[in-house]
Design a binder for these strands. Structure first.
Length: 418
RNA sequence: GCGGGCGUAGCUCAAUCGGUAGAGCGCCAGAUUGUGGCUCUGGAGGUAGCAAGUUCGAAACUUGUCGCCCGCCCCA
């Protein structure tokens, strides 16, 4: 027996309607916000993620699915969606399209991690990317789009937390301040953070180790080190959010684990799905396009984890719309009547009505049971009498009411009886 | 990469002290000749994750291994 690879999940026929619901919601929100879909490959050159996501990040150093292809190229399955979109933006000269360029994606992503609640090795993201605008209202719009998406899904238990981690220049100053603060405490901190001290002191803020958290509590806050421009930008973003009635809390400890973020960062978090509470995360990444060899193009975006959203919805009792059912089941009895039922059903299908008939050589009674199980709205039986008269009775399963009509009228009847 | 928990039917789970495997749900068929849900009857379905070991005897005890789940880390 060969089983599914660790950290992956099958979406079975009985569950797939939930995924379709999520995806439909994503597409409809995207459409309303003027975002167009962009599809990029599932794998890219490894180099793209090294430069885009950041060589010191955990994602890059220990979580990527990297392999050499038969041509000797180093290839990596995308661990996130942004780098590929940025690459495509540059490669296709999209900087020459009318700005801002507003795009979204639905894609699987791959990270080699130990699976747990809300964390898989293959997972799916809905993300949006807006290129070209450095305006604070764009940040607010992106956050509002995320919020609208969650609302559309009926998700209530996700709290919005925002922060600003500044631009290159204020971050440099902040890093200096952090080092100054942490240096005398280094001995009491975890090995990980001692390592971060040199490579990326900002990341220490994010540490969950008890000892480190105590020390971090007194550390300087990035918000106190923002340059005037970044400060004004952050204030403006908050102002636009308030204008839209979006509730948020400023959490100065949000750092984000991907190196490309600048200025605004945000997360929608929930406590209802276990330890992996971030259901949607994003922010601004003004330096990414330049980092990847493109021009100086600012950008904002977010990514939402579809598995986590599904978990959250299931755990908080959010109702999914019922999956579609066959409008009608047509039963036959013997060779000629089964053939007639088969013809009627397929004729309806061609006209866009979902219809079903027997495939198991079952008795009429068993066909009824089956029709009931699959939720058919109406059932018709074609026997000798019906074949002769050219008409039949549709039985409405919900209440048992019956409707007589010629075969030829079934389509009209179903079309009008929603 | 590190910790903890758990592996018995498709699913959820039982089985006293070690005595040779069960229930509910689901699936299939039937309960007078052409009609669902409720009920009743019957049926199919198990290499007890796998492999060693202890024992007259292992689903149960021991070890190893694989898998899953949860947490750390990280992140969506």
């Amino acid at each position: 027996m060969i089983n599914i690879p660790k950290g992956t999940k099958d979406v079975l026929p009985e569950q797939s309607y939930k995924w379709q619901y999520l995806e439909d919601a994503a597409r409809s929100v995207a459409a309303a916000f003027g975002l167009k879909e962009i599809r990029t490959p599932v794998f890219e050159h490894t180099e793209l993620f090294l430069r885009g996501v950041g060589e010191t990040t955990d994602v890059v150093t220990k979580e990527m699915y990297t392999f050499e292809d038969k041509g000797g190229r180093s290839i990596t399955l995308k661990p996130e969606g942004t780098a590929g979109v940025a690459r495509s933006f540059i490669e296709n000269g999209l900087a020459n399209s009318p700005m801002p360029l507003k795009s979204y994606y639905l894609t699987p992503c791959y990270r080699y991690e130990r699976p747990q609640a809300g964390r898989l090795r293959e997972f799916h993201q809905f993300g949006i990317e807006v290129y070209g605008s450095a305006q604070p209202e764009t940040d607010a719009e992106v956050i509002f789009a995320a919020s609208s998406f969650l609302n559309k899904l009926g998700i209530k238990g996700a709290r919005l937390e925002i922060n600003s981690i500044g631009c290159k220049s204020c971050r440099a100053e902040y890093n200096r301040a952090l080092k100054e603060y942490f240096r005398p405490h280094l001995d009491g901190m975890c090995a990980n953070c001692r390592d971060r001290f040199d490579k990326n002191p900002l990341r220490i803020i994010d540490c969950k180790e008890e000892a480190c958290r105590k020390i971090t509590a007194g550390a300087p806050k990035i918000l106190d080190y923002l340059c005037p421009d970044c400060r004004a930008h952050f204030e403006s973003v908050k102002g636009y959010l308030s204008a839209l009635g979006v509730e948020y809390t400023v959490n100065p400890d949000i750092v984000r684990g991907l190196d490309y973020y600048t200025r605004t960062v945000f997360e929608f978090v929930s406590t209802a799905i276990g330890a992996q509470g971030t259901v949607c995360g994003g922010g601004r990444y003004d330096g990414l396009i330049a980092e990847l060899g493109g021009g100086n193009v600012p950008a904002v975006g977010f990514a939402a984890g579809l598995e986590r959203l599904l978990l959250l919805m299931d755990n908080t009792g959010v109702e999914f719309p019922a999956p579609p059912v066959p409008r009608v089941y047509v039963a036959g009895m013997d060779e000629p009547t089964r053939k007639k039922a088969f013809g009627i059903v397929n004729g309806l299908r061609v006209k866009g009505i979902s219809a079903e008939c027997d495939h198991m050589a079952r008795s009429v009674k068993a066909q009824f049971k089956y029709a009931d199980k699959i939720g058919a709205e109406y059932v018709a039986v074609i026997g000798g009498n019906e074949l002769e008269s050219g008409s039949c009775t549709l039985k409405r399963m919900r209440d048992g009411q019956t409707f007589d009509m010629p075969f030829a009228d079934i389509y009209e009847f179903l079309k009008n009886n929603i």
